[in-house]
Design a binder for these strands. Structure first.
Length: 550
DNA sequence: GTAGGGTTAG
C-alpha cells in the first residue's frame, strides 16, 4: 500500500513540477517584457496546453495585444485537444471577424475537432469556408478533411476531396488509405495503395496501418499476410503502431498463433501491443491465455491502464469465475480507477455474468456518472438473472436521467422479456425502439421477437414477422423459428422454414438435425432416416466437458 | 495535416 502512495505522490509531483516550470517561464517572460510578444506568448500557451491548463493559456492570449495566426492556432488547438469543442469553434468564429485570416493549420485543427465532436454539419460549413479561402487544393487542409469525412463514415466525400487535389503528397495518400481502412473497404484501400506506388510515393508506417485497419475477417487473411510481408520488406516491423495493428489484425482474423508470433518477435512490446494480444485472446474466447498474459505483464512491473483492465474483465466475464475479477476490482480501487466509466461497466458485466448480481449492482450504484454502456450492462445483468421488471425500472431511470438508449439497450431488454416470457412487453418495446427511438431493428432483435412469439405458441405471428422482412432473411431469425416449431410440434411450418435454410446454407447440417428431431417427435422415422442420410461430412459429436470452480 | 489496444448486446 505504501509503495502505491509513493508512486501516486511521485506522479503528482511530476505534474506539479512541469506546471511550475511553465509558470516560472511565464513569470520570467513578464519580467523580461517578452510576454506580450506573440512568439513568446504562443510558446507559453503551448506549454500551458500541454500541461492541461487551458485557462492560463487563454489568459496569456487575452494579455497579448498583437495576435498572430500562430497565437490563434495555439489556443484553438489547446481547446480542441482538451475536447472543449464549443470554445474552439467560438474562437475560430471570433478569428473570422478579425484581420488575421485563418491559415491551412487553423482549418485542419478545426476540421479535426468537427470529426471528434461527430459534428457533420459544422464540418461541411468549415469545408465550405476553406474552399472560399482558396484552400481547395491545399494538402494539409485536404488530409484533415479526408480523415474527418472518413471517420464520420462519409468515405465518398473523403475521396471527392482527395480527387480535388492535383498533386497529393504521401500524407494525403495515407489519409485516404486509412479512410478506406476505417470503412472496412479493403479492396479500395489496396487499389489506392497501388495508385500511390504508381504515383512514385513510398509507403511508410501510416500506410501499413491504414491498409491493416480493414483486414478484419479470416477471409481477408491472405491480404493480411501480404501486408505483413510488405511491412517486413520495408523494415516497419519495429514500428510500434504497425506491430500492434499486426497483432490486432491476426486476432480479428482469429489467427492467434500468428498474432503471438508477431508479439514474440518484438524486443520490448509497449502497453498497446500487450493490450492487443490480451484483447485478442479474450475476444477469441481463450480467456485463460488472456489472464495468463495479464499476469505476466504485472510480473514485469508494468502498470495496466483502463483499456487493458476492461479487456481483461471481459475475459473473466466469459470464464464465469469471479475470483480473478475480485482481484482486479481490488487493483482498480487501489489505483484510483474506480471512477472510470469503462472499467466500472466492465466490472458490472463481469460480476453479473459470474453470478454476483448484487456486487455488479453495487458497482453500478457507486459510479459517479453512468453512460449508455453502463446502463446496458446492468440491464443485461438483471435480465440474465430473470429480473425483467427491474430491467424495465432501470430502463425508465435511464430515460429520466437523459441517457439515450441504443440498439444494445433494446437487445438487453428484449432478452430479459424472453427469459421471463413477457410477450406483450417485448412487443411494446420492439415498437418503441422503432417508432419512439428511431432505431432500425437488427437481426438479433428479430431473433428475440421470434423467440418470444414462438414460445407463446404464436407461430403464425412469428412467421408473418419473418415474411415482412426483405430477402435474404438472416439464418439466425429462421433458426429461431425452426427451434420454436420443435417445441410447439408444428412440423409443417418446420419443413417450410428448414427448406429455406437448406437452400441458403447447404453445408450446415444443424438445420437437418433440427428437422430430423421434429420428425422424430412426430414418429416419422422414414423422414428421420432420409434427413440423416442427406447429411454431409462427419456427424459425430465431440463430447462436452464442464467444470465448476469453487 | 495521416496511424495502434477498450467496456454492453446471454
Amino acid at each position: 500500500m505504501q509503495s502505491h502512495f509513493d508512486s501516486l505522490r511521485s506522479e503528482l509531483c511530476k505534474i506539479c513540477r512541469s506546471l511550475l516550470r511553465v509558470k516560472k517561464l511565464h513569470a520570467l517572460a513578464i519580467r523580461s517584457h517578452l510576454s506580450e510578444d506573440p512568439f513568446y506568448a504562443t510558446q507559453i500557451i503551448r506549454q500551458y496546453a500541454a500541461n492541461g491548463d487551458v485557462k492560463s493559456a487563454h489568459h496569456v492570449f487575452d494579455k497579448t495585444p498583437t495576435r498572430s495566426v500562430f497565437l490563434w492556432n495555439s489556443l484553438i488547438r489547446a481547446y480542441a485537444q482538451a475536447h472543449r469543442f464549443r470554445n474552439a469553434f467560438d474562437l475560430f468564429n471570433n478569428m473570422l471577424t478579425t484581420n488575421t485570416r485563418p491559415d491551412n493549420f487553423t482549418y485542419s485543427c478545426i476540421i479535426r475537432a468537427c470529426s471528434e465532436n461527430f459534428d457533420c454539419s459544422s464540418l461541411r460549413l468549415v469545408h465550405g469556408r476553406a474552399l472560399v479561402s482558396g484552400l481547395g487544393s491545399d494538402s494539409i487542409c485536404g488530409s484533415a478533411l479526408v480523415t474527418a469525412y472518413s471517420k464520420l463514415g462519409l468515405v465518398n466525400e473523403a475521396s471527392g476531396v482527395f480527387n480535388g487535389i492535383p498533386e497529393p503528397d504521401s500524407v494525403l495518400w495515407n489519409s485516404l488509405i486509412s479512410g478506406y481502412g476505417y470503412s472496412g473497404l479493403c479492396d479500395k484501400g489496396v487499389q489506392t495503395f497501388n495508385a500511390m506506388r504508381r504515383g512514385g510515393k513510398k509507403p511508410d508506417g501510416y500506410t501499413i496501418v491504414g491498409l491493416l485497419l480493414s483486414v478484419a475477417d479470416s477471409i481477408l487473411l491472405r491480404i493480411g499476410h501480404g501486408i505483413h510481408g510488405l511491412s517486413l520488406k520495408h523494415g516497419f516491423d519495429s514500428n510500434s503502431h504497425v506491430v500492434s495493428l499486426l497483432v490486432n489484425m491476426y486476432s480479428r482474423c482469429k489467427c492467434m498463433t500468428s498474432a503471438y508470433k508477431v508479439f514474440e518477435s518484438i524486443f520490448q512490446p509497449d502497453l498497446v501491443t500487450w493490450s492487443a494480444l490480451i484483447a485478442g485472446y479474450s475476444q477469441t474466447g481463450d480467456y485463460l491465455k488472456a489472464l495468463l498474459f495479464f499476469r505476466e505483464l504485472n510480473m514485469k512491473g508494468e502498470k495496466a491502464d483502463t483499456i487493458l483492465i476492461s479487456s481483461v474483465l471481459a475475459s473473466i466475464a466469459q470464464s464465469a469465475n469471479a475470483g480473478p475479477g475480485r482481484e482486479i476490482h481490488g487493483y482498480v480501487l487501489r489505483n484510483g480507477l474506480g471512477s472510470d466509466v469503462m472499467v466500472s461497466s466492465a466490472l458490472v458485466d463481469m460480476y453479473s455474468k459470474c453470478g454476483f448480481l448484487h456486487s455488479g449492482n453495487r458497482v453500478f450504484e457507486l459510479m459517479p456518472k453512468q453512460n449508455v454502456i453502463s446502463y446496458n450492462s446492468i440491464i443485461s445483468g438483471l435480465g440474465l438473472h430473470g429480473c425483467a421488471f427491474e430491467c424495465f425500472r432501470m430502463f425508465n431511470k435511464m430515460l429520466n436521467k437523459g441517457v439515450v438508449p441504443d440498439e444494445s439497450t433494446f437487445s438487453a431488454l428484449l432478452c430479459a422479456c424472453c427469459h421471463a416470457d413477457l410477450v406483450q412487453d417485448g412487443g411494446e418495446l420492439f415498437r418503441r425502439m422503432k417508432y419512439e427511438f428511431d432505431i432500425e431493428p437488427r437481426p438479433e432483435h428479430y431473433v428475440y421477437m421470434v423467440k418470444l412469439l414462438g414460445s407463446a405458441g404464436e407461430l403464425d405471428e412469428a412467421y408473418n414477422l419473418i415474411q415482412s422482412l426483405p430477402e435474404p432473411v438472416d439464418k439466425g431469425i429462421l433458426g429461431a423459428l425452426l427451434s420454436c416449431c420443435n417445441s410447439c410440434g408444428n412440423s409443417d411450418l418446420a419443413e417450410t422454414i428448414a427448406h429455406r435454410l437448406f437452400e441458403s446454407n447447404p453445408n450446415d447440417n444443424v438445420y437437418r438435425v433440427m428437422l430430423s428431431n421434429i420428425y422424430a417427435s412426430d414418429g416419422r422415422w422414414d423422414d428421420v432416416k432420409k434427413m440423416r442420410d442427406n447429411m454431409t461430412g462427419d456427424q459425430r459429436k465431440v463430447p462436452g466437458l464442464s467444470r465448476i470452480e469453487g
